[in-house]
Simulated assay, not measured.
Amino acid sequence: MTALVTGGGTGIGRACSLALARTGRPVAISYRRSSDDAQSAVAEIASAGGRAVAVHADVTDDASVRAMAASVREQLGPVEVLVNNAGATVPLPLEDLDGATDDVWRQMLAVNLMAPWYVTRAVADDLRGADDGAVVNIGSIAGLTGTGSSLPYAVSKSALHGLTRSLARALAPVRVNEVAPGLVLTRWWAGQEDRGRELSSAALLDRETTPDDVARAVLGLVENPAVTGQTVVVDGGQTL
């Protein structure tokens, strides 16, 4: 029943790691730079009686991802639940076409598209061998609306929607789904929290969407055996 959460030490990833641990699953928390946050999440899970490990990986590098997968198998066993949460953005006005350089495009596609591909491929045999293997990708409403923190970011998340649907076909009966959050005040909004809350208040539910809200949707997809190839929007009605 081992779960692997990429970028699982902070924000939405941390909430997913804790939620999965509460179901009794051992959790592997991958990190690239946030070692202290990952270890903190491991300690929190352990203090509640769960089992977790932190594993370092550059999820944009296939060799690093394969080494991470091998380490997780050795420490916790085969991966039966994968949450592809690690992501990145480069804030740019949507109309700033010149600012969307090749380097920005490469970064957005590497983290938001290729990383989920690498990680899913690295644990595909584990997932296929599980009684009920499940993958949940963390997308964004930017991939549905075409707007967001930058044009390359929105396009990379749109590509992730396509990857989700294609993997649902390629890996069946492993279930592959996606959660697309709206505005969530993670560290990406550091220093702009008031602006974020102002934008959140414009959503139909007039409340801030939290990492725990997203984690509940992830857990629902993990535990529902009849859902695959779907994108679940968690935005308080922001996009309606």
Rank of each mutant, 00 (worst) to 15 (best):
V232T: 13
L204E: 15
V119T: 14
P26R: 04
T210W: 08
V123T: 10
G146Q: 02
R25G: 00
V233A: 09
H161L: 12
N137V: 09
A226Y: 15
E74G: 13
A134F: 01
R165T: 11
G133S: 04
V176S: 03
R216H: 14
R66A: 12
D125W: 10
A172S: 12
G9T: 14
L199G: 00
T147D: 04
L144I: 13
G77D: 11
A180K: 04
V179W: 02
Y118L: 15
V218F: 07
A130T: 07
A215R: 05
L204C: 14
V227H: 01
G229W: 00
R207C: 11
W117P: 05
G148Y: 02
G87F: 08
A48C: 06
T120V: 12
E223Y: 01
H161C: 09
G143L: 01
L185T: 03
R14W: 10
T23N: 09
V104Q: 02
P211R: 08
V136Q: 01
G139K: 03
S17I: 02
R197P: 00
P78A: 11
G182S: 11
G99T: 00
Y118F: 15
G148T: 05
A226E: 13
G133W: 01
E74Q: 14
R14I: 11
G24H: 02
A215W: 02
T147L: 03
T89P: 01
L183V: 12
P173E: 05
V104M: 08
V174P: 00
V72C: 09
T10P: 09
D206G: 11
L94C: 00
G87H: 10
A3H: 04
I138H: 08
V179E: 03
R51C: 09
D102S: 13
P225G: 03
A154R: 00
E80S: 12
V55S: 04
A215N: 07
V59H: 12
V119E: 08
V135E: 03
Q107E: 15
G236V: 07
M108V: 05
G8I: 07
S156G: 12
D125I: 12
P225R: 03
I12L: 13
S140K: 09
L76F: 10
R121V: 14
D125L: 13
L171F: 07
I12W: 04
L240C: 15
T120W: 05
L205Q: 15
W105T: 08
R73G: 08
A52T: 06
H56T: 13
A215S: 13
E178A: 11
A203M: 11
S149W: 04
P26K: 04
S17K: 06
V27W: 02
S64M: 07
P26N: 08
V53P: 04
A52E: 07
S64L: 06
L183R: 05
W188R: 11
N84T: 13
E74K: 12
V59T: 14
A215I: 06
A15R: 01
V233T: 14
G148F: 01
V232C: 05
V155T: 10
L20A: 10
E95Q: 00
L20M: 12
R195Y: 03
L185Y: 06
L76E: 03
L113A: 11
V123M: 08
T60C: 14
A110T: 11
A159M: 13
V184I: 10
